[in-house]
Design a binder for these strands. Structure first.
Length: 342
RNA sequence: GUGGGUGUAGCUCAGUUGGUAGAGCACUUGGUUGUGGCCCAAGUGGCCGUGGGUUCAAGUCCCAUCACUCACC
């Protein structure tokens, strides 16, 4: 899922998103609730019509944003009290309110409010956060059921820091509550990649295969291949879009930093094997020029390529899984990486 | 023509009572994991306009000269 925090995948129109292969996008409760606010989006009967995106939308609950953006956040049993990063105004986000807001946004998949904890944190702090996340998950489920339950799919979120036993405890508790889908949260918060995979594996191996398993906030192309191997079905990550805006482009043979001087007069496309709009029409030299000149088109063309790369990678993995040849795909994928460029 | 001001990194500028030069931007190379287009880190780069002089030592003090600039004639 490309990330469209503010009701737009930055720099792309919905048509360009679709052309780049996006099937579903992510929106943010925290951001959209603060601006433009639910009342505005409700006038359009939801985010789809507001932003002219007819495909599925998943909304994040706001738990992570309270953790990462709002300073002076205060977590209580009731919910997360925080100050807006925009104007400093005070807000209280409860599990029930998180569900209500996401339903107003009209999302197709909504997430439970969770407490994401910093890495590293003490074991008692991690366990306290995961237990609260479990109680909040139960309240989210109740609210969702009270609202009819079937309009949007509600996903629970596993927490538990970097402790295997806590990850297991969190996963078991969510399974008992029973959700249409499950997410693994609290990862990619600064821990080493090997630890991230180890923690994801704990939950992925316990979660049912016939329900979506979503690893939140991950990751690099290698991360995605590794985690799909462990059973993950869905991801969201700002990496393809943010890094596109910072000049880093993804290919099967590693990343390209389009700002590098060696591309100054390079007539080749970013990736000759890529069929995206950018690679079909533009050279590395042009993209470098646009980037150096801070032209708006640089953000757009780079984002188109990276979104196409990520969606293409997921599509290739889906096809490999369905054809029962994922292991050979995975070996080939690693084989093509050039270590000096990754 | 007269009087004043300014000449230091590609650009804009700091540089103490003299002790052989720094910043921001630009450029180069990394980083970026449930998003402000940012931000962070490291690096390249200087006959201190030019020529003399004083001094153990001059970007700094003295003289000359050139360039740019402002005011007045």
């Amino acid at each position: 899922m490309p990330v469209g925090t503010l009701g737009t995948v930055k720099s792309l129109s919905p048509e360009e998103l679709r052309d780049a292969g996006a099937q579903i996008i992510l929106g943010n409760t925290y951001h959209l609730y603060l601006r433009p606010g639910c009342a505005v989006i409700d006038r359009f009967s939801g985010l789809h019509r507001f932003m002219n995106w007819s495909g599925p939308i998943l909304t994040d609950s706001g738990g992570f944003q309270v953790f990462s953006l709002a300073r002076l956040a205060k977590i209580t049993e009731e919910g997360a009290a925080f100050q807006s990063h925009i104007d400093g105004s005070a807000h209280l986000l409860t599990p029930e309110k998180a569900v209500d807001i996401q339903c107003t946004l009209g999302a197709d998949i909504i997430m439970c409010l969770d407490q994401c904890i910093a890495y590293p944190s003490s074991a008692p702090a991690v366990e306290t956060a995961l237990d609260l996340t479990t109680r909040w998950a139960r309240r989210c489920k109740q609210r969702w059921m009270a609202r009819g339950g079937n309009r949007a799919a509600l996903f629970g979120i596993v927490q538990g820091g970097m402790v295997q036993a806590f990850r297991k405890k969190s996963t078991e508790a969510l399974l008992e509550i029973d959700f249409p889908g499950y997410a693994v949260g609290g990862l990619s918060v600064g821990e080493p990649g090997s630890l991230m995979r180890e923690m994801a594996d704990v939950s992925l191996s316990m979660l049912p295969e016939d329900k979506p398993r979503y690893v939140m906030g991950v990751g690099t192309p290698e991360d995605l291949v590794d985690l799909v191997a462990l059973g993950a079905d869905m991801f969201d990550c700002v990496m393809p879009t943010r890094n596109a805006r910072n000049g880093q482009l993804f290919t099967d043979t590693g990343t390209i930093n389009i700002t590098n001087a060696r591309y100054r007069s390079d007539t080749a496309p970013v990736d000759a094997t890529c069929g995206c709009y950018t690679c079909r029409h533009y050279s590395r030299a042009y993209l470098r020029h646009l980037y150096q000149a801070k032209e708006l088109l640089a953000y757009r063309l780079n984002t188109i390529h990276n979104v196409a790369y990520y969606t293409g990678l997921m599509q290739r993995m889906r096809e490999a899984v369905m054809a029962d040849r994922f292991d050979s795909f995975r070996r080939g994928f690693y084989h093509h990486r050039r270590p000096e460029d990754t």
